[in-house]
Design a protein around this nucleic acid. Structure first.
Length: 283
DNA sequence: GTCTCAATAT
DNA sequence: AATATTGAGA
């Protein structure tokens, strides 16, 4: 993972454990990602990053024509790959692409709808309807209401500690300003806890999945390791644990479903559709 | 009424 | 750390 792009000092390399790969590296690694949906998630993440960069240097296109060109080329490649995978899935089984899209648009698509009027995540819109926008919004964690006093305390604490930290945690740096600007602030019509509930945006999930793979798969990686490696601001062990639990659960369900009809990866969560590391900790 | 999600309890 | 339970929302 010692990526050469890291030495370029790109601002993309925000976290030591989430080093941007070169396109070549990414393409090489892609097959190692266990299911199509996760591939799409990772790809879309990269696409977003490149779009942001492209946007950033757009002002300098006079001075950096080659940069622009390279970026655009990279974007083209990424998008092509994205479409290829996506279409493959559609071909595989039509009904499921919807799930995929839903998944990647953040499961709470409805919740985003208001924001989506202003949705700017540019070319991905056609693919991931609601992606990206939410990342910058939700503060760290959701105090469940079960224990009101604690919930309240947590909320206050969270507010104090992370006034502007985000649900997408750390990833916010990746969100482009346009998105931020156009993001029509969350109407505070929602219950307060909801605003503080960790939302696993597609990007965050992609990062989670990547980290998972780096750590040897979902049965190898521990929540703590994952959390540390993800290095997302405000992300807690419990949140990772919960997400990991869901991830495993979904995978299992998927596997059982698939065991009968040996079909292709259909579940957005399915982590072991193609030879990744199945249930057994192959390592 | 059922399902999913994320938090929390065990 | 793994699993079960809870409570909210769709």
């Amino acid at each position: 993972m010692a990526s050469s792009s890291n030495s370029l000092g790109l601002k993309l390399s925000l976290k030591p454990t989430y080093v941007p790969k070169t396109i070549t590296d990414l393409m090489k690694d892609l097959p190692n990602i266990e299911n199509e949906t996760d591939k799409l998630a990772v790809l879309s993440d990269y696409i977003s990053q490149h779009e942001e960069e492209l946007n950033s240097i757009a002002a300098l296109r006079g001075q950096l024509p080659q940069c622009m060109l390279l970026l655009m080329e990279a974007l083209g490649t990424l998008r092509q790959e994205f479409l290829k995978i996506k279409n493959g899935m559609v071909a595989g089984k039509e009904g499921d692409i919807d799930m995929v899209l839903k998944e990647n648009s953040g499961m709470k698509r409805k919740r985003c709808e208001k924001m989506l009027e202003a949705e700017q995540v540019p070319n991905l819109k056609c693919d991931f309807k609601g992606k990206g926008v939410m990342m910058n919004s939700s503060p760290p964690h959701h105090p469940s209401n079960r224990k009101h006093p604690k919930a309240f305390r947590d909320f206050v604490q969270a507010s104090n500690e992370n006034p502007n930290s985000n649900g997408g945690g750390g990833l916010n740096l990746r969100a482009d300003n346009r998105t931020l600007l156009n993001y029509k602030h969350k109407p505070l019509t929602q219950p307060i806890w909801k605003n503080n509930r960790r939302s696993w945006s597609p990007q965050l999930h992609a990062r989670f999945v990547e980290t998972l793979h780096i750590l040897g798969g979902m049965y190898e990686a521990t929540p703590k390791q994952i959390r540390e490696m993800m290095n997302v601001d405000g992300l807690t062990n419990d949140q990772v644990k919960s997400h990991l639990q869901k991830y495993r659960l979904h995978s299992r369900k998927q596997q059982e479903g698939c065991a009968q009809q040996v079909a292709k990866g259909e579940d957005p969560w399915d982590p072991d559709r193609d030879g990744g590391e199945p249930m057994a900790p192959a390592n």
